[in-house]
Design a protein around this nucleic acid. Structure first.
Length: 858
RNA sequence: GCCUGGGUGGCGGAAUUGGUAGACGCAAGGGACUUAAAAUCCCUCGACUCUUGCAGUUGUGUGGGUUCAAUUCCCACCCCAGGUACCA
């Protein structure tokens, strides 16, 4: 019989669907295992990145299931977001319709891949049954001060016509569309993620199951730094300029003061002075430049003297105050003490404006002369020109100076963070409405809990000019105040879609719960936390940090009993492919570049760099095409075989052929034996065998051992597959036993069954089919994972390598239980070894058990 | 600049704790089967040298070091990828 993937795959998929094979409930008798892959945005079609991500997850889910775990493996849709709204504007299709059509199509595609999802738990975040609870949490957050409204300058993307969180600005560009980000002043809702900042940071060291680099990225993003807040009294007027510094050791070298151009103090100081007009135009100029300049390589340091002075609190020296374009208004106090001798930026600024330099840290081996310095000295050293602190090491004096400042009342220790609160207001339609009402009399009032959800109205008008369609819908906006009953207006901003993805994994545990708070604590206590989370590295900061915060908050609301949502995290690499380019028609799809010629003009195709698959580069592989040509099993196998999951995967058409060929090979060897082994029981623990049979059994059990370790400990499916390939190769090399030789056929059957079960999580359709053809009534996926017998897996002979001075010279085969002395003597008696040693004296003989003998001879 | 990773045949990748470098697959070459092709099955396959052998030398980005032994540990450097960036 020929291998026909389509027929087999559709048969089993139908069965899984009809029998709800993978639907689960809380079962106290089994250990639970919650396996989660990052849910997709329903953009229209699944792409190869999804296929890889979900295949990795599916293998683990199926493996754990065979290992006896009660596996929760859900899927859903991150269904709110801009593309739906853009489609509405461009194609005049309602976002809801567009989204649901996409979901239907993608759902079909996922089912066609044979993923073992519990489809009963499917969740779409655009469903009011989902976001109503998010609105409830929002109200609670407002009550607890964890959500608040603030007028602030925000990152704004003109193209997307919406606000972006700091985390969503990448190098000054919008993370989604790549448009230049501008600033805008708006009333915005914020989530007080900073309320949990210390806990978020703490747990960075308490999540051993997360990749080191993700934790590092999060730590850096939180950006905790210790320092002092120091007051620099103004000369000639009241008050002082407050400065944050981590380098109080350089305080004696502070010779001028820098204030962020946007800082209100700038205009205050300049007010009424001759420089006022000049300062104002400088501030305007910087405000306009700011975002543009920040992305530029050559950021010109500019500043303007404010005709004001302050006093260095330790030296008493007069310090001119400058407005500067390179000082950040929203970090620290927005003012910086400048120490030109020990900070490169300050040094450049001082040179430009001819400001004084005082060396306060001296390297141990030489003297610094301010007159001849060409750059700031930023390394460690001994304090000089620093009064009572002279002679101390700068790294050790930090505490002493902080103590001194506190004792003198001139400053105090403080901690600064880089992380800001999370701005979640979006001026978009297709998102969860913020359940707030603006009343002229009562101010901002929350919608009553019993009035939730605030349903997103459908009958809105989309205009290409942007602007929120919600704000334009009178019947939505006009409402009554829940407090005074008077006329009031609804909040028309919607929430950032990262809010929905911050708790969808909780919702999966009780997807149909329709009583407050929408999460069934009992069920959550059973399933949470997620044991294994799998997704792209691109979410290392944004989604993962938000989800961690939201989890801690829900815990404090009593909704949830865990501190962290994801115990183990696997970040899988991207899928890449070489680009194909026609000199005339630009990037072309791979199928348009067959035989190296452009399909339009016949010109030679230029093979470009290997890059992440993307529509714009046209270096994409259509999963539908793959499934149609090779079947889902081959697509799954190739995704796993070509590279370990955390690495980028380079797509190779030949590689896919290779995977397909292997499945065919397995199929054929099976087909060759199936009639003969159908009636034979597989070899089992008690079966004794020797010679070739013993060797095959050994290989079988070694393969079980290797595959189990590779999947369990490392998720290295590529080496697991290699191991099964080796077993299949061994079967091909094995002499075909006669029909009557049931002892031999039992061993063959054991090997074939092992191969089938070991591959079951990877290529579930084909293995189910083979399993059934063997006469089994229980499906392969319901079988326990095979166990190996160490006694059978154990070799009875071993090859010992003989080295002389670390160089491989000979090898010998000995029994595994051979003693050390005998092995050493054998090695020394080896003919080749004797001739190599020649006149040399043997100093030492080292034996590494089971591996080698190294003879040290001089 | 800083923080992470990483650099192994023609290619994707193995080598789990310092102990036989290159498993497995792809590509390539050869053979078998076939009228032929495809498919399939088998064999060879890092480089160099010669005395062509169960041979020797060399070889895991570069240069040093530790060790009986280094792809693996240490130091310095080069390159690549990701993150981040005037954070005071």
């Amino acid at each position: 019989m020929k291998y026909d993937p389509t027929a087999i795959e559709e048969k089993w998929q139908k069965k899984w669907e009809e029998e709800k094979t993978f639907s689960v409930t809380e079962d106290q008798s089994k250990p639970k295992y919650y396996l989660l892959e990052m849910f997709p945005y329903p953009s229209g079609k699944i792409h190869i990145g999804h296929v890889r991500n979900y295949t990795i997850g599916d293998v683990v889910a199926r493996y754990k299931r065979m290992k006896g775990h009660n596996v929760l493996h859900p899927i859903g849709w991150d269904a709110f977001g801009m593309p739906a709204e853009n489609a509405a504007i461009e194609h005049k299709i309602h976002p809801a319709k567009w989204t649901h059509e996409n979901i239907d199509h993608m759902k079909m595609q996922l089912k066609r891949m044979g993923f073992s999802y519990d489809w009963d738990r499917e969740v779409a975040t655009c469903d009011p049954k989902y976001y109503r609870w998010e609105q409830l949490f929002f109200i609670w957050m407002v009550e607890k001060g964890l959500a608040y409204k603030k007028r602030s300058t925000v990152n704004f993307c003109v193209k997307c016509d919406t606000v972006l969180a700091n985390e969503q600005v990448e190098g000054g560009l919008c993370w989604r569309c790549g448009e230049e980000v501008t600033e805008k002043v708006l009333d915005q809702w914020f989530f007080k993620i900073t309320a949990y900042i210390e806990e978020l940071l703490d747990y960075c060291d308490k999540l051993p199951g997360w990749p080191e680099r993700v934790m590092t990225m999060q730590k850096n993003w939180i950006g905790k730094s210790y320092g002092c807040e120091v007051d620099f009294p103004l000369i000639g007027s009241e008050g002082a300029i407050k400065v944050f510094t981590t380098r109080q050791d350089t305080l004696f070298g502070a010779t001028f003061m820098l204030v962020a151009a946007e800082h209100p103090l700038v205009m205050e100081l300049a007010k009424g002075k001759p420089c006022e007009g000049e300062v104002r135009s400088f501030v305007e100029k910087v405000k306009k430049q700011d975002k543009l300049m920040r992305t530029s390589e050559y950021y010109e340091k500019e500043g303007l003297f404010l005709d004001s002075y302050c006093r260095n609190p330790l030296t008493g020296g007069e310090m001119p105050v400058y407005a500067a374009n390179f000082v950040l208004a929203d970090y620290g106090t927005g003012c910086v003490m400048a120490v030109p001798t020990h900070d490169q930026r300050d040094f450049e600024f001082a040179k430009k404006f001819n400001l004084p330099l005082i060396v306060v840290i001296s390297p141990k081996d030489k003297m610094l002369d301010p007159a001849t310095m060409t750059e700031a000295y930023v390394d460690e050293g001994i304090l000089v020109n620093s009064g009572q602190f002279d002679g101390m090491e700068n790294t050790k004096v930090l505490e002493a100076i902080a103590d001194f400042l506190e004792a003198q009342g001139k400053g105090k220790r403080t901690i600064q963070y880089r992380l800001r609160d999370w701005g979640i207001s979006r001026q978009r339609y297709w998102g969860a409405p913020i359940p707030m009402i603006n009343c002229d009399l009562c101010g901002i009032v929350a919608v009553k809990e019993e009035d939730l959800p605030v349903v997103l109205p459908e009958n809105v008008v989309f205009s290409p000019e942007g602007g929120s369609p919600l704000a334009a819908l009178k019947e939505f906006v006009d409402t009554t105040c829940p407090k005074c009953g008077g006329k009031a207006r609804r909040e028309t901003d919607t929430m950032d879609t990262f809010v929905e993805s911050s708790w969808y994994f909780d919702r999966y545990c009780s997807p149909d719960c329709d009583t407050k708070p929408g999460l069934d604590r009992k069920k959550l206590d059973y399933w949470m936390p997620v044991d294994q989370y799998i997704g792209g590295i691109e979410h290392a900061i944004l989604h993962l940090l938000y989800a961690r915060f939201y989890t801690k908050m829900l815990r404090d609301f009593g909704v949830l009993g865990v501190d962290e949502p994801f115990t183990n995290l696997l970040t899988q690499g991207m899928v890449c492919k070489e680009t194909t380019k026609c000199p005339e028609h630009g990037y072309v799809f791979p199928e348009q570049a067959a035989d190296g010629k452009c399909h339009l003009c016949g010109k030679d195709i230029i093979i470009g760099k290997t890059e992440k698959m993307s529509k714009s580069l046209k270096n994409v592989i259509d999963p539908d095409y793959l499934v149609k040509t090779y079947g889902a099993d081959t697509a799954r196998m190739f995704c796993l075989f070509a590279a370990p999951p955390e690495k980028d995967l380079e797509w190779s058409d030949q590689g896919v052929d290779g995977s397909f060929r292997f499945l065919g090979r397995l199929w054929r060897i099976f087909d060759e034996y199936v009639e003969d082994i159908k009636t034979v029981a597989p070899a089992s623990a008690g079966t004794a065998s020797d010679g070739e049979l013993k060797a095959l059994r050994r290989k079988t059990h070694q393969t079980i051992r290797k595959v189990t370790i590779d999947i369990e400990d490392r998720f290295h499916f590529n080496t697991a597959i290699s191991a099964v390939m080796e077993l299949v190769n061994t079967l091909y090399a094995f002499g075909r036993p006669a029909k009557e030789n049931t002892a031999a056929l039992a061993v063959v059957r054991e090997a074939i069954e092992a191969a089938v079960l070991l591959l079951c999580p990877i290529v579930p359709h084909m293995t189910e089919e083979l399993w059934q053809m063997l006469g089994h009534k229980t499906p392969a996926s319901d079988m326990p994972w095979p166990v190996f017998d160490p006694a059978i897996a154990c070799e009875d002979e071993m090859t010992i390598v003989i080295q002389i001075n670390g160089k491989l010279r000979s090898r010998m085969t000995v029994s595994v239980d051979e003693g050390e002395e005998k092995i050493k003597n054998n090695a020394l008696a080896d003919e080749k070894i004797i001739s190599f040693i020649g006149d040399l004296n043997v100093h030492k003989v080292i034996y590494v058990p089971g591996k080698l003998v190294n003879i040290v001879a001089r």
